[in-house]
């Protein structure tokens, strides 16, 4: 095919070649990332070499202090109790937020919206709840509820509600717009359409997102627990401030195990329902 005697094939005239364009984009991205790194390193006095040099040191320190010893294992029942409390709270929060978010998101989707203004409002409200981090929610709510399990509950609830509303809106629009049209055409009422069309077709995605949020919430509730002095976070904070690093490390290890176990379970559930 490609012998040199052949005439050159025509290419588009007066347009930049795609290959040149790609090369240009790559160069620009590389240069700007490097520039950003350099500028921020200079501004924050970050020494790259020193940073890397300190890694072995910190590993040695962690290995020395962050190992659960016999004393730490004695605290196991107490840690487990708090851990379970935290896990149950996360599940409760996520399920409550999911139910609220589902019905709220119905007002925001293209397929089921009541009118465009309400839909826009729903999206704005969801964006607001989502974009305020759960830790900030916790700090704000500390003023009204004090150091209380309710503070953590609402902080997680708001963040989860915002996140799930947004994802549910997208899921419903993606999965069920065609069957919603058909059910409308049969004369079904909006509520019938939701229960006969939208829920059956989007339930796997919805469960999948709820599982993901349960995992996320167990992680965040550890952090929020430090602020609200409840759950596993408070326990970690206590041991850490007492410089009881071996007990604190046991808390960390158990939390990681819990998150992994939950992830494995939810992956199994996903496999079954998909």
């Amino acid at each position: 095919m490609l012998d040199e005697t052949m005439k050159k094939a025509p290419r588009p005239q007066n347009q930049t070649s795609v290959f040149v364009k790609r090369k240009r984009t790559f160069t620009i991205v590389f240069v700007s990332v490097f520039a950003l790194f350099t500028v921020s390193a200079v501004v924050t006095n970050y020494d790259v070499i020193k940073g890397f040099e300190s890694i072995p040191q910190s590993i040695v320190w962690i290995a020395k202090n962050f190992v659960p010893n016999a004393q730490a294992w004695e605290k196991l029942p107490k840690i487990l109790e708090k851990l379970i409390e935290t896990a149950l709270l996360s599940i409760a929060v996520t399920v409550c937020a999911a139910v609220c978010a589902f019905f709220f998101s119905l007002l925001g989707t293209r397929t089921t919206k009541v009118n465009p203004w309400i839909s826009r409002l729903v999206r704005i409200v969801a964006a607001f709840f989502r974009n305020v981090p759960d830790v900030v929610w916790a700090i704000l709510l500390l003023f009204s509820f004090g150091q209380n399990i309710l503070t953590g509950f609402f902080a997680l609830f708001f963040a989860t509600f915002g996140m799930l509303t947004r994802t549910f809106i997208e899921t419903i629009d993606e999965v069920s717009s065609s069957c919603v049209e058909a059910l409308h055409a049969t004369g079904a009422t909006p509520l019938q359409t939701v229960f006969q069309g939208i829920i059956p077709s989007s339930v796997p995605e919805i469960i999948s997102w709820v599982m993901y949020m349960i995992e996320t919430n167990i992680r965040s509730s550890t952090l929020i627990g430090i602020l609200t002095a409840t759950g596993i976070g408070a326990l970690f904070d206590l041991y850490y401030k007492r410089m009881d690093y071996s007990a604190a490390s046991l808390v960390v290890i158990l939390t990681v195990i819990l998150v992994i176990v939950i992830e494995i379970i939810s992956n199994q559930i996903r496999k079954v329902i998909m």
Binding site: S176, S178, C179, E181, A182, L183, H184, A185, T186, G187, T189, Q196, G197, P200, S201, V203, P204
Partner: peptide
């Protein structure tokens, strides 16, 4: 709703609830 009750509709992409 009364009008839609009396008119059936068939679609190019069938528009069924696939999971049912």
């Amino acid at each position: 709703r009364q009008i839609r009750k009396k008119t059936g509709m068939i679609f190019q992409h069938y528009n069924l609830v696939d999971r049912l």
